[in-house]
């Protein structure tokens, strides 16, 4: 877990979550669904995060709670990639 992970998450959010507000106005713990993210947009977000971090969310993580804030997403990515680095940094097991 580090600042880079959150920066990349925020970039992916900006490009794929179709939020009606600027993602930079939201804190790390702000509820993204309450901020206007739709279920369909959360699917696009999930797929884009997999590309950005070169990970695959297992079925047990394909739930609303895993994607409902920057912090929640960061925690899931940390769990999946070990060190939470974006794929360019070689996140392994």
């Amino acid at each position: 877990m580090n600042d880079d992970t959150r920066t990349v998450i925020r970039r992916v959010l900006r490009e794929h979550a179709r939020l009606p507000v600027d993602v930079d106005t939201l804190g790390d713990d702000a509820d993204l669904f309450a901020a206007g993210m739709t279920s369909h947009a959360s699917v696009n977000l999930m797929l884009a995060l997999e590309d950005a971090f070169d990970i695959e969310f297992p079925d047990r993580m394909l739930t609303r709670g895993v994607f409902d804030s920057v912090s929640a997403i960061a925690a899931a990515i940390t769990e999946l990639s070990g060190d939470g680095e974006p794929s360019a940094a070689g996140g392994g097991t």
Partner: peptide, 12 residues
């Protein structure tokens, strides 16, 4: 796979 996420939301 995206559908699994939609389904999980729908169920919960």
């Amino acid at each position: 796979r995206g559908g699994r996420m939609l389904a999980a939301n729908q169920r919960s």
